[in-house]
Design a binder for these strands. Structure first.
Lengths: 96, 96
DNA sequence: GTTATATATAAGCAATTGCTTATATAAAGA
DNA sequence: TCTTTATATAAGCAATTGCTTATATATAAC
């Protein structure tokens, strides 16, 4: 599959767009996403994997926690999508 | 559904990206798309409907033919996607 | 070591998608 | 009018998606 199509498929989902909106302020840990989306932890993990496989987000491990953030180098398309997202604040403080 | 998500879903498909690439040079009639994609006419019609419903393309009727083109006013995201597409030339001359 | 916690992976399933074939609609021509 | 042509819509179905629950992995604490 073409990279553009892969990235578009990764972006074309309400939950994944919300994940990205959460990350606009910086790193967020998985447990925080679970609270925000109101779906199960495995479901969040699977969605994050799609974004990661498309090269849209990066991960950082710290002990048992894992933090995700928007990648540094973005294609123009991904960049445009991120720009459209509201910064979904609420304080990205992982309360695990 | 949010407009951004709807547009991303409409764009996240290889066949529909090819349809858009065909339209970069201007209007194209449905029968031309059928040849290009190698799928049935109803399938093409259904894909065009998704692009139209997302506000990405416009249609113009001329007799029994119908021509489709990329919309004039595009959101930044759609604009960015269109820019990434190669102009898939070959001469958009409807040979119906 | 054992236990607890955070995340990932696997298996299963309902909903969605994208095609197919069949049929409907609409315009043009005999 | 009847037929032909171009496109759209409907119905059906296999493939994909996004969740679920159950299980595996990995780190930390005891």
């Amino acid at each position: 599959m073409d990279l553009l199509e892969k990235q578009l498929k990764a972006l074309a989902d309400k939950n994944r767009l919300t994940l990205l909106a959460c990350m606009k302020n910086g790193e967020v840990c998985v447990c925080e996403f679970v609270e925000v989306l109101g779906i199960s932890q495995p479901a969040v993990s699977q969605q994050l994997k799609k974004l990661k496989d498309a090269g849209i987000i990066l991960e950082r491990k710290e002990g048992t926690w894992k933090y995700y953030r928007i990648a540094d180098q973005l294609s123009p398309v991904v960049e445009a999508v991120i720009n459209e997202l509201k910064t979904n604040d609420g304080g990205n403080t992982c309360s695990c």
